[in-house]
Design a protein around this nucleic acid. Structure first.
Length: 280
DNA sequence: CCAAGGCCTGAATG
DNA sequence: ACATTCAGGCCTT
């Protein structure tokens, strides 16, 4: 029996969605854009700014969603084992920069890079007697020099970060507009940003722009598909071109339905757990 | 259209 | 120890 109400805070934070989080005694504390959240083990949120954000997407109808994605034994098992795993609703700009930084990288390094960015460019605040650095706003990063950004250890991604920040700051791409668009339009839009390809785009769409049919296809998901869905999705290649990415994505949405993003999150978590990869 | 190679960096692997 | 490979891609040729 699946309990649709529970929130597993630990699993949700440690599932590759967010990076600027750490645990202090009973509480998970994390930077989310201009805000700092403090979350207890039941998922009750206090925040520095008192912004009311449905961070755990509790307005999603989990019962309907889980029934909808439960197409086979593999997902059913993942859903059962990781009850309470949620897709988080993040600050879009922080999410965008996070996943530009993530390309060709690994979690400890991504985390390190992002900490340096918020420390160097973000505003220092005190909350619950601890120090935090808010995530810098687009203008701040847009004005930063490439050298300053590079000093955060992001390497060749520095210029992508600056350009992305400029585009967002000037509202050439507007997150509020993207939230209203359908998946395809939003994706085409966001892929205009340098450093954003299919995978990064899907991360941003799923984790911050409410596009639940976005399914980030990274190495891990490809590995899972090869392992459990080889025939179903006719996986042939290891290296995925843009076209193959899109074809595969269509097959996945066709199979798992409009909430395919949730299925990805459960499968991903399951496979990572098998390999005991380090999170935060 | 596809394939191959380069790219910063640090952790993991031998 | 030290070298090499790899890591949650993207861009250019």
């Amino acid at each position: 029996m699946v309990n649709y109400k529970i929130i597993n805070v630990e699993n949700s934070i440690n599932s590759g969605q967010v990076f600027l989080w750490k645990k202090n005694k009973e509480f998970w504390n994390g930077v989310n854009g201009d805000d700092v959240l403090s979350i207890d083990k039941n998922g009750n949120i206090n925040s520095y700014q008192n912004f009311k954000i449905d961070f755990f997407r509790q307005n999603d109808n989990l019962e309907k969603i889980i029934k909808s994605i439960s197409k086979d034994k593999t997902v059913k098992m993942a859903v059962k084992k990781f009850q309470g795993l949620r897709i988080l609703r993040q600050d879009p700009f922080q999410c965008l920069i996070s996943f530009i930084v993530s390309s060709n990288s690994n979690i400890p390094k991504i985390k390190n890079n992002l900490e340096k960015i918020s420390k160097k460019f973000g505003k220092k605040i005190k909350y619950h007697n601890q120090e935090f650095f808010l995530f810098p706003n687009p203008k701040k990063l847009a004005k930063a020099s490439i050298n300053e950004i590079t000093s955060c250890g992001v390497g060749y991604r520095a210029k992508f970060i600056k350009e992305a920040a400029k585009i967002i700051d000037l509202k050439e791409i507007d997150f509020d507009y993207l939230k209203k668009c359908n998946y395809q339009d939003a994706k085409e839009n966001i892929c205009q940003i340098p450093g954003v390809g299919g995978k990064v785009a899907d991360c941003v769409l799923l984790f911050s722009l409410d596009k639940l049919e976005a399914v980030p296809l990274d190495r891990w998901i490809i590995r899972i598909l090869e392992k459990y869905y080889l025939k179903k999705f006719e996986i042939t290649t290891k290296t995925i071109t843009e076209k193959q990415y899109n074809i595969l994505h269509k097959k996945i949405v066709n199979y798992f339905g409009p909430y395919a993003g949730y299925s990805q999150q459960f499968l991903f978590k399951m496979e990572r757990e098998n390999y005991k990869k380090k999170w935060l």
